[in-house]
């Protein structure tokens, strides 16, 4: 009986509905495909042209070679710039992660007078255009007759990374179950032991994420760096100045290398998380 009804109704609606559903489902797939193509075109281009046998200017395809990958320091100024970026990024990450994590614990774990003002002070640097941050810091350095260079750049990077660290670590602290700490206290752990053995390990993934974010922000920053670095050339600054006359293919090697390295770190982190969850 019920089968008969299904048979009677099915041919009447199903082609339309089926088509609509198929179309709906595939429209979204097509859309996602197009959107990701758009996102990845320049990445693919950068990767492809890292194999270009191009000589000085990497504008036109001249033939396939592995030389650039075998010898990424073939254009020495690229490696110099990369070394500077890594040094600055490492120092900026270290300081901003320490300072930012302390602020995150203060705001996330304590109720005190001036908490909302503190939140505002953390939000403001993120809402200020980079060019204003860079220009204002440079004019401060100029007043104190400090020449822009390596350390002013580190200071600038720490300044704009702190807020991002605070926001990331604070989110992790907010997601903690307070009962875990209460349990530690119930088991006669004192405050310091509870912090060291329970709180800190639980917040650690958040801190690690914040540090990674700080490093990638610092490594990729151009505008603030351009204002405060003087004669020190970082990797983005090198690309910017070289853009006019053509970028050596070694820069593409480093850009692609960073891409795969970061991707590997993210995937490893995800796998680690999944294992822990089990």
């Amino acid at each position: 009986m019920s089968k008969k009804i299904a048979d009677a109704t099915a041919p009447r609606i199903s082609p339309v509905v089926k088509f609509q559903r198929w179309f709906g489902r595939n429209l979204i797939r097509v859309y996602m495909f197009l959107a990701f193509t758009y996102l990845f075109i320049p990445v693919a281009y950068t990767f492809a042209f890292s194999f270009n046998d191009s000589g000085k200017s990497n504008l036109v395809w001249k033939g396939f070679t592995l030389d650039n990958w075998k010898n990424p320091c073939g254009a020495p100024e690229v490696c110099n710039a990369l070394a500077n970026s890594i040094k600055i990024g490492f120092l900026a990450t270290l300081f901003s992660t320490i300072l930012g994590t302390m602020i995150a614990f203060a705001i996330g774990r304590h109720n005190f007078k001036g908490r909302s003002t503190s939140n505002l002070l953390i939000f403001l640097p993120m809402a200020t255009p980079e060019i204003v941050l860079g220009a204002s810091l440079l004019s401060l350095f100029l007043v104190f007759k400090i020449n822009p260079g390596f350390w002013p750049t580190v200071i600038a990077h720490v300044m704009f990374c702190i807020s991002f660290v605070v926001v990331t670590v604070k989110a992790r602290i907010a997601s903690l179950d307070p009962r875990l700490e209460q349990a530690a206290m119930d088991l006669y752990a004192n405050e310091i032991q509870t912090f060291r053995r329970v709180t800190l390990p639980l917040v650690a993934p958040g801190i690690a994420g914040a540090a990674l974010l700080a490093f990638s922000l610092s490594f990729d920053d151009f505008i603030i760096t351009n204002f405060n670095s003087g004669t020190v050339i970082t990797f983005p600054k090198f690309v910017y100045t070289a853009a006019a006359r053509g970028i050596p293919a070694q820069a593409n090697v480093i850009g692609s290398g960073m891409f795969f390295l970061a991707l590997a770190i993210v995937i490893a982190g995800q796998i680690l998380n999944r294992r822990k969850a089990r």
């Binding site: 504008l59 151009f222 690309v239 853009a243 960073m258 970061a262 993210v266």
Partner: peptide, 28 residues
């Protein structure tokens, strides 16, 4: 996986990607 894909392009320096657009859209 898709979330990682959204962020992934941004691991290649943003200046390199902008220059890549310049060359993709350029005369050559």
């Amino acid at each position: 996986f898709f979330l990682v894909l959204v962020v992934a392009p941004f691991f290649t320096s943003f200046l390199l990607r902008t220059v890549a657009w310049k060359q993709i859209l350029g005369e050559e």
